[in-house]
Design a protein around this nucleic acid. Structure first.
Lengths: 344, 344
DNA sequence: TCCATTTGTTAAAACGTTTGCACGACTGAT
DNA sequence: ATCAGTCGTGCAAACGTTTTAACAAATGGA
């Protein structure tokens, strides 16, 4: 019923092979034949059957995104949506389709990816974030599949990855507060099994150390990427006898929780507490007060991940491409951190 | 190199057909053979080639989401992410994969969908929102493809769709303000070419009419689903000689713009202006003050869309399933609208 | 005991492409 | 005129499945 390459061939009076060659711009096809076949193709409304093509070429021209089970909890939705936009845009530009896979738990995640990869439905996988020990990474790595990690893996430092320099970014954020005269600076971290939490904590520690500032364990709290975490952290900090005057936070959403709590308790930002956080989601510009935040180039992360993955697929890994791409970050200074501490 | 059905067959000492039948639980396969073949399958690590399967079965077990060009502008990111989660979850439960398609403009959108549908890569399409005249809908409808619209089409009232009763929802929101004694109620709408804008405007008008309240053209403004729109609407309203005391807004993000503007101008919410909006994104609970909002069940919209589409694909449309599914909404009353007007 | 049915399996065709090989028709240098 | 090379095209095999038709063996009712 659907029009196939044979229908086109018959009507054009050529062989199916010729039609196929027209399709792929084979050099040894005469301009005349090419034009004639092409005419017939859109006259009949021909569309190549992608499945048949994949079957013989052993390549699917599609990649998949593994959406972690807890996408709704980790980071903000903006983060994922923006990442997906970047991925889809570049993939589509390079002629690749994007599939979304997910799973309710790690086992399902591996099964899903395995089905797609082993079933030859996708050529490669993009992993959206990096847990400390990720069975999906194990699976992909051990079986030699193409994949790229958005983030960093401690276990496999040599896999393809796209990441920010989170240590440096956090260093910058902390130094920004230091430069304003803050000497008591706290840190609100994320789940400890995420590499990004470790890196950002490290940058904070480095900055304190380089600035000759005191590091106090009670000024460091862990949480989730949720407003509640920020809220809790805030009330913890504000009840401390010797509380910090500045805070670096792992994610904007967490900061919103802090902001909300401070507002409820009638504290003033930035006068009572200066805030700097990460990710620079659009709402951080619109909170009261607007939030200083590190822009990590989310779209760019996704875009580059597509780029790198597809490059790797097409060159079958033997490219001289950088194994690890670093997307630049940039501190956006806004009102929430615009308050200098005068040294006494 | 990859293990195929033939490898399994050879090792098990049966024919490929038998292996295939084991795979599909054919009734006329002996329990013994079945077990033996299954053993060999996971001994060899066999995974069926989905492409080959699709080629002969003429069905792909995947659907695609058409992500509109302006996903980043329309509605909030939360909206899309939540929709996608709902879609992917239910699709995966029903054994379907989900592809994301997008395009920089309407022409590219049609091309993308056409390539996927005509190239037999997907069995159906989910459209994420409804413009007044959408060439993608025309294409899918005219060629008899399976698709479901999240939203409503005025042009094709009989297509499969999943939607809220936006007229009623907006009616409820407006009536809520009326019940608090408000008599001067404004409305901030979205782009006029979106059906959802029309419906919500209609509900607002109906409610005013049923309550015997005055409708003033200057109390209705159009905008985008952006904070800026809310900001602009706010300053327009507040400069009116006879300004409204309550506002119904098409989207939470717009409300944030309004909130921000009011805060800058030192107006108080809800005392100076009561606000009710739509979509109930998580942040609306966390704004200052928390925002009254209509929860439209976004996840449910996506979930149901998958359900309906796949049902339609599998029954080839001749099901007795409702053509149009309505997802219930619910007004979440919060501080932004908790202020009664005493009639003078 | 015989025929009809059921049961378990196989051979082969089909799905719609791509591609290596072959081959005839030119071209142009000898 | 011959030969080597190039050009344009076709044949047929291959990709990994599913499925129809066929068939041998087992079963069982008369």
């Amino acid at each position: 019923m659907a029009v196939t390459i044979k229908d086109v061939a018959k009507k054009a009076g050529v062989s199916p092979s010729t039609v196929s060659r027209v399709l792929s711009n084979h050099p040894r096809i005469s301009a005349e034949t090419s034009r004639k076949v092409k005419d017939i193709m859109d006259q009949l409304g021909y569309h190549p059957n992608i499945m048949a093509k994949s079957l013989v070429s052993k390549t699917t021209n599609s990649i998949c995104i593994m959406l972690p089970k807890s996408a709704e909890e980790l980071f903000s939705n903006f983060f994922f949506m923006e990442l997906i936009r970047g991925i889809v845009t570049q993939a589509s530009r390079l002629g690749y389709d994007v599939l979304i896979s997910s799973g309710a738990n790690e086992k399902e995640e591996v099964e899903g990816v395995s089905r797609l990869i082993n079933g030859r439905r996708v050529d490669g996988v993009i992993l959206l974030y990096s847990r400390q020990d990720d069975p999906v990474i194990d699976f992909l790595h051990d079986n030699g599949h193409h994949f790229v990690l958005i983030g960093r893996s401690e276990q496999y430092p040599d896999i393809l990855s796209v990441d920010n320099d989170n240590v440096q970014a956090s260093y910058d954020a902390t130094k920004h507060l230091v430069s304003l005269g803050h000497e008591r600076i706290g840190f609100v971290s994320g789940p400890p099994d995420l590499v990004v939490s470790k890196d950002r904590l490290q940058g904070y520690l480095d900055a304190l150390h380089d600035s000759g500032l005191e590091m106090r364990p009670e000024w460091i709290v862990e949480g989730e990427f949720l407003q509640e975490s920020g809220y809790r952290a805030m009330s913890f900090f504000m009840n401390l006898p010797d509380r910090p005057t500045g805070l670096v936070m792992i994610d904007d959403v967490v900061s919103f929780g802090v902001l909300r709590g401070l507002h409820e308790l009638k504290y003033k930002v930035p006068e009572d507490l200066c805030l700097v956080s990460f990710n620079n989601i659009p709402l951080s510009e619109l909170s009261t007060p607007p939030l200083s935040s590190i822009d990590i180039g989310i779209y760019n992360l996704g875009y580059t991940a597509s780029q790198v993955l597809i490059q790797s697929i097409q060159n079958n890994n033997d490219s001289s491409y950088q194994r690890r791409q670093i997307i630049p970050h940039r501190l956006m200074v806004r009102e929430s951190s615009m308050y200098s501490i005068s040294k006494k």
